[in-house]
Design a protein around this nucleic acid. Structure first.
Lengths: 161, 161
DNA sequence: TCCATATATTACGCATGCATAATATATGGA
DNA sequence: TCCATATATTATGCATGCGTAATATATGGA
């Protein structure tokens, strides 16, 4: 019969969990009055928050050089063509803004807006809430193995590129 | 600094692996001259193949009652509103067809076409290829733990619904 | 200086999924 | 029989990502 239960197929499990976690995150964000923050914004926001923190640590208060759209895409793991729409939506939702790169006229710099910087702590709360609710009943050891497996998949597939 | 490496965040890992596996599967399907089979079709096809096999085992050769669109959605884990477009595309690509349900005039029955039945073995080959390439270097024990973790997430989140 | 090549963005179309609302049909009582 | 409620599908719009092609700008030699 060759019948395979869906929950035995790793592909089914992973795609389903991915959608599920995104859905839970969306709810957590809404519960924290963060309707303007979509799950897909996380990668970009993390990069910009980290970058800003780095800048402050280096005593460059208020400098905010911004980050190139292409560099953001590389760090967040998204194709350039996916970035345009993403940054469009984030700009529409008031979290970031674009400026021309003063050095490279092909490029744009992406900056956090004041709002984009302020939502940081609440977004972390929402993410923690999502992870807490979703991963209850799972031991740290199990979690480690699971993460290792997922990392291995990324390594396997990216080996050729 | 509160900096978290992307590969330490389970959410990042899972969403990334989900996209990666889908991309690998798409390539495998293309390599097996199965351009008309999109990754998203898998769930529905599996249900219909299984159902047909069951029917044959019960000596109902050629009966093919088809399966209700709503029932397919339940089994594949998709919302009804996601099913319309999916079945539209599968019909466009020649893998299934709709007929009216003779018993329930609200419902439609979805049937495999001849092509939809024939691609079965090659689709299994493509899925096996995708899993093989993606999960090399992972022991059965690790795999079991990973699957258990993913199942637990689905259980945790669906508990309330 | 000038061209071939590389890089940064954007434009467009497609695939997938969800939520909400509309429509048609069933179904279980009053 | 008739209505309130439930179920099956579809229509619409949005979010997310990808691939390909077009456009603008950089850059490293000849």
């Amino acid at each position: 019969m060759n019948y395979i239960a869906p929950t035995d197929c790793p592909y089914y499990l992973i795609t389903r969990v991915s959608l599920t976690l995104t859905s839970v995150l969306k709810r957590e964000l809404a519960d924290n009055t963060l309707e303007s923050v979509k799950p897909a914004y996380l990668g970009v926001l993390m990069c910009l928050w980290t970058d800003t923190a780095m800048g402050e640590m280096l005593s460059k208060f208020g400098s905010d050089d911004g980050m190139k759209l292409s560099e953001l895409g590389r760090r967040a793991g998204l194709e350039p063509s996916s970035m345009t729409g993403l940054i469009d939506r984030m700009e529409r939702d008031g979290l970031v803004c674009r400026t021309d790169d003063p050095v490279d006229r092909r490029a744009q710099k992406i900056h956090l807006t004041e709002k984009g910087a302020q939502v940081r702590d609440n977004v972390f709360k929402a993410v923690d809430g999502m992870l807490g609710k979703s991963f209850t009943g799972i031991s740290p050891d199990q979690m480690d193995v699971a993460k290792q497996v997922l990392r291995q998949v990324l390594t396997n597939v990216n080996k050729g590129s």
